[in-house]
Amino acid sequence: MDASLLTIQPNAPEPIYRQIVEQLRRLIASGQLVTGDLLPSVRDVAGFHAINPMTVSRAYGLAENEGLLERLRGKGMAVAATQRAAHTQVQRLALLEPQLLELARHARELELPPDPVLRRLSKLLEE
């Protein structure tokens, strides 16, 4: 995996370390990262994105605690063996929950009935 695979939005309300963990979770759930894949070093990620190395360490540490990553002696971080190549559909859908809640909220604020929103969403999903 390359550091450029991560997208960092420094000015988002979500802290950068959470953005990293969230992206790792998605990359692993979708099978883009598989067991044994090595992660870029803390220095590479920090250097590429011009972010504090401590932030990257914190993200990796958290991902390790969650069982997403494991530390390989002398090699750095890798995608953990316990991770299935791809999660079940239910698990992957659960990862989308925050965005769906946000979308539902916006739709209600705009007083849009569900039908046109769902139609547009279906269209987008088929693209």
């Binding site: 960092i8 420094p10 000015n11 950068i16 803390v42 220095r43 920090a46 250097g47 011009a50 190395p53």
Partner: peptide
């Protein structure tokens, strides 16, 4: 960022560009 993280440099910087600060 790298000097702070690797050499332990202590940094104080002032700015009004908040996104710079959020990075490092």
């Amino acid at each position: 960022a790298l000097r702070a993280g690797e050499s332990g440099t202590t940094v104080l910087f002032s700015t009004h560009i908040v996104s710079d600060l959020e990075r490092v």
